[in-house]
Simulated assay, not measured.
Amino acid sequence: MDKPWTVSHGPIVATEFDVQKAEAIRVLLIRPIGILPNKPGDPIRPFALGLFNDIRALAKPDVKATALRRAVGSFVHSKRYYFASAQPGSMRHDIDGKPVEPLSTEDRLVAQQRFLSLKRGNDENSASSIEPAASPAPPSKTEQIRAALLRRDRQT
């Protein structure tokens, strides 16, 4: 796939799960930031490039950068965030949630590919939970030899 989408699905809105991820970021900061959704139905806004540095500056004194990075990463590497970023005309936003620049075609294409990859992964997981469990793979040659040696040791 080398062409970005041309049909927009409109603003991509947050689910309860997206709000929980946003809250995980919010509790690590000394003040709220406007880019994060506050309730289900709020729009998911793509972050401006370098925004993590602005967010890190607002971290509570006892918060390690790694914890903040993981919380932000959980939000920005989600399926709905990628979906919002992949939309035609999607804009990057500053820490207050104001649009600052459009996403580049390359960034939209990457977001589109990651969204589709995550979507396929979820589809495969849901399909495999419906299908009956596959029979276990036959033991490898190494496992067969080990089992034979163990049986021989028990017999002596």
Rank of each mutant, 00 (worst) to 15 (best):
D2Q: 12
D2T: 09
W5P: 05
V7H: 09
G10P: 11
G10D: 05
V13W: 03
V13C: 12
V13S: 13
E16A: 15
Q20D: 06
Q20C: 04
I25M: 11
R26V: 03
L29K: 05
L29P: 09
I30K: 13
I33C: 03
G34S: 09
I35H: 02
L36F: 06
P37V: 11
P37Y: 05
N38A: 04
K39T: 12
P40K: 07
G41R: 00
I44G: 01
I44M: 02
P46R: 00
F47R: 00
F47H: 00
L49H: 09
L51I: 07
L51M: 04
N53Y: 08
D54G: 06
I55N: 00
R56D: 08
A57K: 05
V63N: 07
V63L: 06
R70Y: 06
A71W: 01
V72F: 00
G73C: 01
G73M: 00
F75I: 00
F75V: 00
S78A: 14
G89S: 13
G89D: 11
S90D: 01
R92L: 10
D94V: 04
I95S: 10
I95W: 10
V100M: 06
E101S: 13
L103S: 05
E106F: 13
E106V: 14
R108L: 01
V110S: 12
V110Q: 13
V110M: 09
Q113M: 10
K119D: 14
R120F: 15
G121H: 11
G121Q: 14
N122E: 15
D123Y: 10
N125L: 15
S126F: 04
S128M: 15
S128L: 14
I130G: 06
A134T: 12
A134H: 11
S135A: 13
P136A: 10
T142M: 10
I145P: 04
I145T: 07
A148S: 09
L150T: 08
D153L: 11
Q155E: 15
T156H: 09
